[in-house]
Design a protein around this nucleic acid. Sequence first.
DNA 1: ACCGGTTACCATAGCGCTATCACACGGATT
DNA 2: AATCCGTGTGATAGCGCTATGGTAACCGGT
Lengths: 368, 368
Amino acid sequence: MSKSTKPGSGPEKPLATTETSGRRRSTANPKLTISDIARLANVSKKTVSRVINHSGLVREETRDKIMRVVDKHGYTPDPQARALALRRSYLIALISNQPNPQYIVDIQQGILEAMTGTSYQLVVRPCDRSVPTLHDDICEIVTHQKFFGVILTPSISEDDELIGRLRQIECPYVRIAAVSLDTPDNMIETHDYVGAAEAARHIAALGHTRIAHIHGPDSFLSAAERLRGFKVGLAEYGLRIDPRYLLAGGYTFDSGMECGAQLLALAARPTAVFAGNDEMAVGVYQAARRAGLRIPEDLSIVGFDDSPIATRIWPTLTTVRLPIVHMGRIAAQLLISNHDRLAMEPPGATSVMPSLLVRNSTAPLIRE
Amino acid sequence: MSKSTKPGSGPEKPLATTETSGRRRSTANPKLTISDIARLANVSKKTVSRVINHSGLVREETRDKIMRVVDKHGYTPDPQARALALRRSYLIALISNQPNPQYIVDIQQGILEAMTGTSYQLVVRPCDRSVPTLHDDICEIVTHQKFFGVILTPSISEDDELIGRLRQIECPYVRIAAVSLDTPDNMIETHDYVGAAEAARHIAALGHTRIAHIHGPDSFLSAAERLRGFKVGLAEYGLRIDPRYLLAGGYTFDSGMECGAQLLALAARPTAVFAGNDEMAVGVYQAARRAGLRIPEDLSIVGFDDSPIATRIWPTLTTVRLPIVHMGRIAAQLLISNHDRLAMEPPGATSVMPSLLVRNSTAPLIRE
DNA sequence: ACCGGTTACCATAGCGCTATCACACGGATT
DNA sequence: AATCCGTGTGATAGCGCTATGGTAACCGGT
């Protein structure tokens, strides 16, 4: 082990490192504390505390006097000291098992947008639902780090057992999911079925009748919701999915490719495919290419997510977009405003709507 | 101890919310503090502190006795209390202006892997270099949140002025960049030029001579490094880039498409293009399609990054991969071990090598 | 005058940890 | 012996904030 290099002098010379060798930050601009502000404003610390926490019970005159001192010195309370006293940190955790990198980046961006100007910080905690101790691990870290709250994305957001545990430890949370599973205060509802229905109408309106759907895995509620919406949309045109045209994928490129190949090998192959997400849709592109079919002339394809690839690939993919950045923003607003009503305006709505983006992968059915 | 929940009678009834309405976490498993451990082990708090911080100066016998109590109750020190006393939090910030979502997700994953089992938390801080107050903002948050350290990715990692400021406020940092710009302890070097040289050799070995390169923006050091490496690789085959074949892109799909179109419109069009990243490479795909050229028969293309799209698109893209997850992991190890030598093994190496992945977008030159 | 009831504020005790300093103790040096 | 170490340990004072409980000042109503 790397022993301390210079010979000891003071009492208590650490053998290893930490005890006294802790680097000390040079306090260039000597950070003011609440006591300094109190002294400068001729009031007690508690009164300053009341003012910066908007607790009321302070005369306007006193408040103004304190605020002037606070603003003058640009004072902001120390997050750690506050966390210690409140037994609650200003960290918001994003707990997520989303496989889509763009989703992650967008949701983080949205959360951060809502946080700008606050002293909240965003901590990321990806997770793996196959870990048996996951619930315990999450609860452990939430209580130990005293997270202010957590934001959950699909599919971990759909885990009611985990939610039960979070309630038990009184951890505020916001879940993002395709349907409402909770009180509005705890939910962002994405209404995936609306987007899927829109996709169905678009395909049906183009004249297709042999329409296939590759849905996602059961572990994602969105898979079932997109299927449901798709059926609803088709029904409006008096159509339904032939059971042979309904396949289960895994939200992955490979599964899309396999299901696509399977569909295109059918004697009466479908002329349009709605894939549960863009990854699978692009898999179908690949299957179509191998089968020598042109998109959209021979096969129309619709995806879901509006991943970056949707506009990179040719033909560009008709798909459904969710306002993910916005979802992140309102999730954070919900979390913060719900607990700390004076600190932030609550978001207007807790449900968002997907929208269909028609591009070049869909075309009217050509009667043969 | 916590006052029992008797009905509000105390003086000081809050007008608004916060003062007394703060939800109190039910201490299901009454968290032990260092004092409890000290009492149970019949030693002072300080001695317990010494043991859990590996500060030495404790007899082995005493240490074992304390560790037995600690393990028995699963005690872990409170992060906020420790942060307050140490004037340093256990938060590591990822400061990044990377446009590639996969990069972000991977680097986060790597950092988190290194952090598992520690009490460090990862805080994300995307940034925008066009914000004029960026340096001040970063310094402000680093000092105010007392970040343990920061990890910087390209291109913000290449900002020497920012680094100077970080040194000034004594904020530990690790930079990830294409070339060494700092001491090894502060750098992860990605040697982009090695990957680019490899790409050049691959293209040259296929017999191409009319070889183009679309490089990235000057604000990314990787752009210059990839160009440099590419030239070096070509030189080994006695080749060089015709100035007309050297274009400046912006690391975006659109810029790749435009530069691609420009190249393919030349009388003597290039037969191979090395794009500075995959996004631009896919843009060149688009340009080739519009020009009616087949890949790889008429045009070979090589990218850089190995983005998800590289394997989704057809033909799959020959590209250069960087071990981004691994980079994140060693960045975190470097940061933690450098400051806290007993807590983590330092990473073996602080430089990583890119590798060429030959796929289907490159083929031997067909003599016409 | 008195009086409970409110409002505005203060003094101070924590929150859970680390750092400072003191002290006791054995062994080596005067 | 007397003195000096260096080593192991404990009491205690912070770190910067919030919460508790109290005390003045002020209120209208007797």
